[in-house]
Amino acid sequence: MAFNKLPKTIFYSLFSFWIILALGAAGSWYWWKNAIAPVSSSEEELITVEVSEGSSGQEIGNQLEEKDLINSTLAWRIWLFSLRLEDNTDDLRAGSYQLSPSDSLPEIGQQIREGKVLSTRFTIPEGWTQRQMAEHFEELGYFSAEEFLAAVENIDRDQFPWLPDDIPHLEGFLYPDTYQIPRDRATPDSIITLMLNRFAEVALPIYESQESPYSFLEWVTLASIVEKEAVVDEERSRIAGVFAKRLEEGMRLAADPTVEYGLNIEQTEEQTLTLEQVNTPSPYNTYLNSGLPPTPIASPGKPALEDSLNPPETDYLFFVARYDGTHIFSETFEEHEEAQRQIQN
């Protein structure tokens, strides 16, 4: 029967059905576009969301809606269902996220699906001790200083077999650098692993590249003292040369930073080391003890490591610091005493 021969009632019923179907489809499409659209146009606003381990997709959707990051939890459930149809999974990863309401629902969901967790960045300057690091991490709100100082005493030689034997802690082997780590992984162990891996990446090739009169531990220890003494970059290699010559001739290093480390103090221009402090016995006191201290006293950077492994030849045996960070170098003790008088005056 020809379409134009249909009874009018049936014709109008079919026509109405297709109109309703088209309007419904258009309405659904309009609703969907609005449901997944960004909540806000502000690109500067970032909202932190904590997704706990084991959270369901519905729980995450409710949290996103409560924080005004998505328009509809129904649209969120539909989006998750479409993922399941597409690749048979709708897994969402736990962690801390910084999300923007200027992103659409699929964009926000994809960040959580891919685990693009909130990262944190920290910088450890050259010459810092593990105690300074601990205090810094506490100030950043990662964990307590005590937690970090306890963790650096756990020597994992299975994971890091290159670490020297019989060291009581990791002082000197936590490489100074700028690091980025997922915020929810900012634990003492994770950060220590990150820094030890960086030390192995930077320092081990330097030591293995040439013959050295020092053991691995002696080399890092010497580099840490050079790092603490050298304020001006141009003087670093010369300072390394002086220390190498003193060790070669059996002289005590007489380095202030070793005394400071042993007493857990830090001298300043206003409060310099006293004679009593210099004469206080300590395994780290290189005024009283010959040779190198038992461990490094800080974290040396790459230049100090390189200069300490291959120091230049020098006739200097002494140096004394000016108040601007530079030093006066001397070949004899008499010249050294005169340099000290000049600075004091």
Score class of each variant (00 low, 15 high):
M1S: 13
M1F: 08
F3D: 00
P7M: 06
I10F: 15
F15W: 13
F17Q: 06
L23R: 10
L23S: 15
L23V: 15
G27D: 10
G27M: 13
E43T: 13
E44Q: 15
E44F: 10
V49E: 02
S52K: 14
E53Y: 12
E66C: 03
N71M: 04
R77T: 11
R77A: 14
E86S: 14
D87Q: 11
D90H: 03
Y97G: 03
Q98G: 14
P101D: 03
G109W: 09
P125S: 05
Q132E: 15
Q132Y: 07
E135W: 04
E138A: 14
A145R: 09
A150G: 05
A150S: 13
A151S: 12
V152Y: 10
R157A: 10
D158E: 15
Q159P: 00
W162L: 13
D166Q: 14
G172Q: 10
Y175T: 06
P176Q: 10
Q180C: 05
Q180H: 09
I181V: 15
I181Q: 12
R183I: 00
T187H: 09
I191A: 12
T193Y: 03
F199I: 01
A200K: 11
L204C: 00
Q210M: 13
E211G: 09
E211W: 04
S212D: 01
Y214T: 04
W219S: 02
W219R: 02
V220Q: 08
A230P: 12
E234C: 01
R236T: 11
S237M: 06
R238V: 12
I239Q: 08
G241Q: 07
V242C: 06
R246N: 04
L247P: 10
L247C: 06
G250C: 11
G262P: 11
I265W: 10
Q267H: 15
Q271S: 14
L275H: 05
L275V: 04
E276R: 10
Q277K: 02
Q277N: 00
T280C: 09
Y284E: 01
T286F: 09
T286I: 05
L288R: 06
N289Y: 04
S290C: 01
P294D: 02
P300V: 02
K302W: 02
A304V: 02
A304P: 04
E313W: 01
T314N: 03
D315K: 07
D315M: 00
D315I: 00
D315P: 00
F319C: 06
F319L: 07
V320F: 10
R322V: 03
R322Q: 15
I328W: 11
T332R: 01
F333G: 00
E334P: 00
E335A: 12
A339T: 06
Q340E: 12
